[in-house]
Amino acid sequence: MTAPPATPSASSAASSPVVTLDRVTRTFGDVVALDDVSLDLHAGQLVGMLGPNGAGKSTLLSLVAGLRRPTSGTVRLMGRDPRDPVARIGLGTTPQETGLPATLRVREVIDFVAGHFPDPMPTAEVMDMFGLGDLARRQTGSLSGGQKRRLAVALSIVGRPRVVLLDEPTTGLDVDARRVLWDAVQAYHAGGAAIVVTSHYLEEIEALAQRVVVVDGGRILADDDLASVLSRVGSRTVRFRLADAAAIADAGVLALLEHAEREGDRWTVVTPEADDLVRSLVAADVPFTGLDVRGATLEEAFVAMTSPAATNPVTTTNGRSAR
């Protein structure tokens, strides 16, 4: 019912990519926002892009949307420069929640965006898909946060684009509202579109993505299928107190603590091998106190990934090596 132009969702790697970044660098003054990034996106892929604030996610998306030029390297959207409006017929993006024109009605905003595309979905169909039917005549300024998000995502697909960029589509929404949006995104993806979702939430990436790209410091740290990346960010934070480092004699424990951070007697280790660490601390009879083991936040997991401990090369399923 809501299919974008047909493209094969299986064997997508065989088709030419809908988005290509080839050795793209983008700087803002002295700040390197993207550092020699290469990435291909094929029809039918649902890619989650993870990374802390300032990692370069938004810069990457703005290059694909033709809002900025790369400092060096090339960006292609539907085989063209995304700054060419024709290329952007294949692109759908979302406005920020706060960025909807407050005095316009829901239907008017959808009509306005649909008017840019050669073969848009009927406005009524889009409104039904996102549960906006009853709100058609409401001014967007009077919508709730969740309703605005739904409208924003609806605007990204009303033109039946082949590529959809969703920049943090559900930030600030409760779980139920999130699921409604995820269902709609998956329904659209089922028609063969390529979708990129950025998020702070690991949960969101888990729910949606098949392929995960982890970005930090302007580089791609990992580009792999969901399960592999999840195992890599499955790190835990182990904290304990230990005044005398010399109390650790066991070589195996020392190796596990190699990248520990110390602040006085407080030790913090972010590691995917928390179980091994605790077991060996106990086995070696290390006199620690105040042991605390918690799931690492995404930020901590990213730091762990960038640290030398995580330098084992990341193999990708997408034909390019991550940098």
Partner: peptide, 26 residues
Amino acid sequence: TSTERPTTAALTPRPGWRLALTHTKF
């Protein structure tokens, strides 16, 4: 039949005057 070259098949821009009218109305 557009699966071989998805990059060009659907990229027919709307005429400029239609877009101008869309923006005027908005």
